[in-house]
Nucleic acid binder design. Structure first.
Lengths: 121, 121
DNA sequence: GCTATAGTACTAGTTGGCTAGTACAATATA
DNA sequence: TATATTGTACTAGCCAACTAGTACTATAGC
């Protein structure tokens, strides 16, 4: 189970906040494989947003093979990728690093700068 | 000097592409301190965009203390921050790393994962 | 001072992302 | 099979980001 919360400020869209919280829940173990998520309607009511907003979040996570949905039944944490497919996982990490490294380099920072900074934490 | 180029595809706004290219030019040494940039008009004609688009890029870089503009004279690479103000530089690096860490952690990656990935390059 | 050249300001149109309203379709279960 | 429950599809409105058009202001240099 997991407690959802939305922050209207900060500019992060609602559907993305939902996505992040589910991802984080899975990553930290609060959400387990096979567990059922709240229905789009109940979560929508709970968070006081439209059910399409919740639906959009679920849908995106389903595309990423993280959730599995069955009309009439509900939405569940998928057995599939996040823990299993280490190939895709590696690629994702590589993507994230590439993105941020290119930003950093446009500011004149090197990979070493970043590593040093991260290690300090 | 530097050769500007815009990519209409990819979704990166024109003004941001201009910013990135100037930053990159400074970081790599193609643009030197005190050097004059193309005028907003000439660069606008060159890139086939509105002069306001170029102006927006220059203005943003001026706010960041990277460029210095003088109405009637032109726009120049500033002597100031990018090389000198190491305080702001440090903060920028910290920001970038925070961003990187938070995105990565939402995917379940740790700081060590990131460091490993970056070192491989 | 006059004029060319440089940046600035104001306005407006377009577009895409986000959210909501509402109707539809599929499944479970009694 | 009837009905409740679940996800889906389609449409529309809002808003911010982006770009452009056009007029204005400041400086250089003759």
């Amino acid at each position: 189970m997991i407690e959802f919360k939305l922050d209207p400020k900060g500019g992060v869209p609602f559907y993305r906040q939902i996505i992040d919280q589910i991802r984080y829940g899975i990553a930290t173990g609060s959400l387990k494989v096979g567990e059922q998520l709240p229905t789009v309607r109940s979560l929508a009511v709970d968070l006081k947003v439209n059910l399409n907003t919740v639906s959009k979040a679920y849908k995106e996570l389903e595309i990423q093979n993280i959730l599995e949905t069955q009309q009439g039944t509900g939405t569940f944490i998928g057995v599939s990728k996040i823990q299993i497919n280490s190939g895709e996982r590696k690629k994702k990490l590589a993507d994230i690093c590439s993105e941020l490294l290119s930003i950093a380099s446009s500011y004149g920072f090197t990979a070493d700068d970043i590593i040093k900074e991260i290690k300090q934490r």
